[in-house]
Structures are given as structure tokens and as C-alpha cells.
């Protein structure tokens, strides 16, 4: 589908797959992926917190890798696959990370948690059994509500679950 039909010489169509669905967007190539997701495609689960890659609430997966979408120009996602928080439970069945988040009652205000969950899912995909040191080094998302202890416990829970896969 095509959206956001504004004519301008800078604008060129960008094609990307978001949560399994193909999109062609007519937006400036330098528009950050975050705003294309939220405003053009209408997926608002990915949040805005700082706009300078310092907080992580905008974390999504680009071809499986975690990226801070507030600073990633949409042109860098051209032809690529993006997974957002909405794509983590495609058939309504929560992923293991999400289930652990409920079991440990992690979120408070919840605003940082889309990004936190996406960052953790990526961390576990790369390091299925992270040590505390791995978690400390790999997770730099900010949570103003202070849910860190539960985040850590939930990560270990997922890692220790039988098959160790985070999906």
C-alpha cells in the first residue's frame, strides 16, 4: 500500500516489510524510522523518548538486529525487514519474553517497555544464556519507573526455560 502522498523532489518511495507486511512509503529518506512507524504506518507501540538514541524506548529489530529507530533514517530500512513490539506476538500468543514480563509483573507506567522488551529479545537471540555482566553490558535502556530488578529476573527466567529460545 502507498501512504502519505506528498509530492516533493526529495521524496522517493521506500519499501520495507514491517511485522510481515510489505509497505511502500512516500517519505523523505532522512525521516527516522520511528516516525514512519508511528505516524505513517500507524504502529504506535514503538515510543518516542529522546530522539537521540539515548533511552531505547524506540528500539525495534531491523533484519533481526536491535536499532534505535529515532535516529535511523528510513532510507536505511529500504528493502529490509522490521519487527516492532506489535510483531512479537503475531498470532496473539505472547513471546516468552512477554510472558516473563507478565509473570514478573515488570511494567509500571509501561512506556519504556516496548523498547525494553525488544532490546531484551534481541539480547537473548544473540546470547541465549546471558550472565548478569552480559545483561549489564547489553542493556542500556532507561526506565524511569525503575523496573530493572524485575527486568533482570525475567531475563534469567526466559534464559533458564527449557529450550532457551526467546521466541
Amino acid at each position: 500500500m502507498r501512504m502519505f502522498g506528498v509530492s516533493s523532489e526529495h521524496i522517493m518511495p521506500i519499501t520495507l516489510t514491517v511485522n510481515g507486511k510489505a509497505h511502500t512509503l512516500d517519505v523523505e529518506p532522512e525521516m527516522p524510522l520511528l516516525w514512519a512507524l508511528r505516524e505513517t504506518i500507524g504502529l504506535t507501540g514503538t515510543k518516542f523518548g529522546c530522539g537521540i538514541a539515548a533511552c531505547g524506548v524506540c528500539t525495534v529489530h531491523l533484519d533481526g538486529r536491535p536499532v534505535r529507530s529515532c535516529v535511523l533514517p528510513i532510507s536505511a530500512a529500504d528493502g529490509k525487514t522490521v519487527t516492532t513490539i506489535e510483531g512479537l506476538a503475531p498470532d496473539g500468543v505472547l513471546s516468552k519474553v512477554q510472558q516473563a514480563w507478565i509473570a514478573h509483573q515488570v511494567p509500571q507506567c509501561g512506556y519504556c517497555q516496548s523498547g525494553m522488551i525488544m532490546a531484551v529479545a534481541a539480547l537473548l537471540a544473540a546470547t541465549p544464556k546471558p550472565t548478569d555482566a552480559d545483561i549489564d553490558a547489553g542493556l542500556t535502556n532507561i526506565c524511569r519507573c525503575g523496573t530493572f530488578a524485575r527486568v533482570r529476573a525475567a531475563i534469567h527466567d526466559v534464559a533458564n526455560s527449557t529450550d532457551g529460545s526467546a521466541s
Binding site: 504502529l43 504506535t44 518516542f48 506489535e86 505472547l94 511494567p107 509501561g110 517497555q113
Partner: peptide, 27 residues
């Protein structure tokens, strides 16, 4: 007790003021 507001906060469906949208809206 499990918090009643949590399920929507793990799947991105919770709606905050920043997420509200309506047709024709500008920014």
C-alpha cells in the same frame, strides 16, 4: 494480585496520550 493494566503494556497495545490519533490530525 496481577496488575490489571499490564497485559496491554507488554504487547504495545496500551494507548498513551502520545499514541492518540484521529483522521485529519496535524502535528
Amino acid at each position: 494480585a496481577q496488575r490489571l493494566d499490564l497485559p496491554s503494556k507488554v504487547d504495545g497495545s496500551a494507548v498513551y496520550a502520545i499514541d492518540f490519533t484521529m483522521p485529519g490530525m496535524l502535528y
